[in-house]
């Protein structure tokens, strides 16, 4: 395990995270279900986490890892709030489809 940093070029992590990030974006674009969009956003955040950790590991600087904690904190808070919002909407319109939410426009 010690030699991961030598065996795997750092750029691969970069590419992997970017790919993951883009999959997250695709998910947000692709789906209409608010919950799944929320999950895709989590995916995006996780790609960033991965990136940060890889940078941190490769540069031997633990700041990046600490930062990941904050991202987790925020992600948790975000999810809590997001799901609460979702619940309150679901009570009103009985749907999690974001396309239902189009009263406000133009």
């Amino acid at each position: 395990m010690e030699n991961t940093l030598q065996a795997v070029p750092q750029n691969w992590y970069l590419v992997l995270s970017t790919l993951l990030f883009c999959i997250g974006i695709m998910g947000v674009l692709f789906r209409r279900n608010a919950i799944i969009i929320l999950m895709c956003i989590e995916l995006m955040l996780n790609s960033v986490n991965l990136l940060l950790v890889s940078f941190s590991a490769y540069s031997g600087n633990s700041d990046g890892q600490v930062f990941v904690f904050f991202i987790m904190v925020v992600a948790a808070a975000e999810v809590a709030v997001g799901l609460a919002l979702l619940m309150s909407i679901y009570r009103n319109v009985a749907s999690t489809d974001i396309n239902v939410l189009n009263k406000l426009k133009w």
């Binding site: 997250g24 974006i25 955040l45 990136l51 940060l52 990046g64 975000e78 979702l86 939410l101 189009n102």
Partner: peptide, 29 residues
């Protein structure tokens, strides 16, 4: 429902943008 919609839209897009914020910070780091 208007308030709901407003909150939800703001939330989804805001969170989405946060992703970019973080990605940017990560790259800078």
């Amino acid at each position: 429902t208007r308030s709901n919609e407003s909150g939800m839209k703001y939330f989804l897009m805001g969170a989405f943008a946060s992703g970019f914020l973080l990605f940017g910070i990560a790259l800078i780091y």
